[in-house]
Computed example of a mutant assay.
Amino acid sequence: MAITNSKDAGFALALDGGGTGCRAVLVDPDGQEIGRGQGGPANVNSDRDGALAAILDACQQALGGRVGADRVTAVMGLAGAEVSQAHDWLVPQLPFANARVVQDAVTAMVGALDGEDGIVAALGTGSVYSRRLDGKDIVVGGRGPIIGDQGGGNWLGRQLLARALETADGLHDRSPLMAEVLDKMGGVSGIITFAATARAADFAAHAPLVIQQADDPAARVILAEAERSIAAYIDRLQPADAALPVAFNGGLGRIFAGRLAGRWPMTEAKGSPLDGALLMARELVRQTA
């Protein structure tokens, strides 16, 4: 049923979007959830048109005719937002009364730390790292699915297929994982054909093979490189005088939190990137009331 009271105000919508998909949640002025939606890949740097369609789809599902978009304030945390200047071109295409678009690392940090100092490693299709310390925020890493996002699902999938090609060329022993990948993909020609048109989400779909067969010699090499990169970014954000607690989130966060346990103080993420976007949306409602 649509909400028709003209005095109702302060509806907040949050959206979290990355290379695999996007999720949206709508809450009423009291913070009670009244709608959810989900859509396809939403990396605004690598596929603007596809991301916009996915975002609008997820938002429309969340709205569901319950409230007009002109009475909603939205905050969206999106992969690629910082390099594509998404706030400038995307906001005018959104139907909301007020909207803000930020890098997904920002909403991941807000959700995970809930205002406290710390470091957040957000590991999903991509990877990005953020730090909050004495009221100042720093974001590093990411850089997109082609030459960045080391340790994320897209990167793991690319490394898996690249190593399969090297194995076919005789550079590595044919481990059980490599044999499985080459068989499933139709050999060298199948991998090359796939890679020619594959998107980040398509590569990331192969990442579970690496995780599930972590003891395979090929998987061990790939995971060791992922750990090296993740640790290097976290070390970059650690202050010199005292180690900050590190929170991992995203689809691969728990996996690498376990694999890297003991290197720094660790803390559980207090919330997800979607939670962070919602906190920011509700704060924006208060600021613009």
Rank of each mutant, 00 (worst) to 15 (best):
T197A: 11
Q85A: 09
L237K: 10
E283D: 15
L244M: 14
V285F: 13
S189Q: 12
R23F: 07
I55V: 12
W89N: 06
Q212P: 01
G153L: 08
A42Q: 05
L182V: 13
A86Q: 06
L223M: 10
V101W: 00
A201D: 07
A9C: 07
Q238V: 04
A12S: 15
T125N: 04
F203R: 07
L161N: 12
I147W: 11
R158M: 14
L94K: 10
V44S: 03
K270A: 14
G276Y: 01
D169I: 10
H206D: 02
M178F: 06
E116H: 14
L223N: 04
M76H: 00
G115I: 10
A9E: 07
N249E: 03
E227H: 05
I230K: 05
W155I: 14
L223V: 07
R132V: 05
Q93V: 04
A81V: 01
L177V: 12
R174K: 15
I119S: 04
I55F: 02
Q38W: 11
L161T: 12
L133T: 01
C59L: 09
S6V: 15
A219M: 04
P41Y: 07
N43A: 08
L161F: 14
T125P: 07
S175V: 10
S175A: 13
V25D: 00
R174E: 15
E283Y: 02
A196P: 01
P29H: 10
A53G: 03
V110G: 00
A195I: 08
P29E: 03
P208N: 07
E283M: 06
V101E: 00
M185R: 14
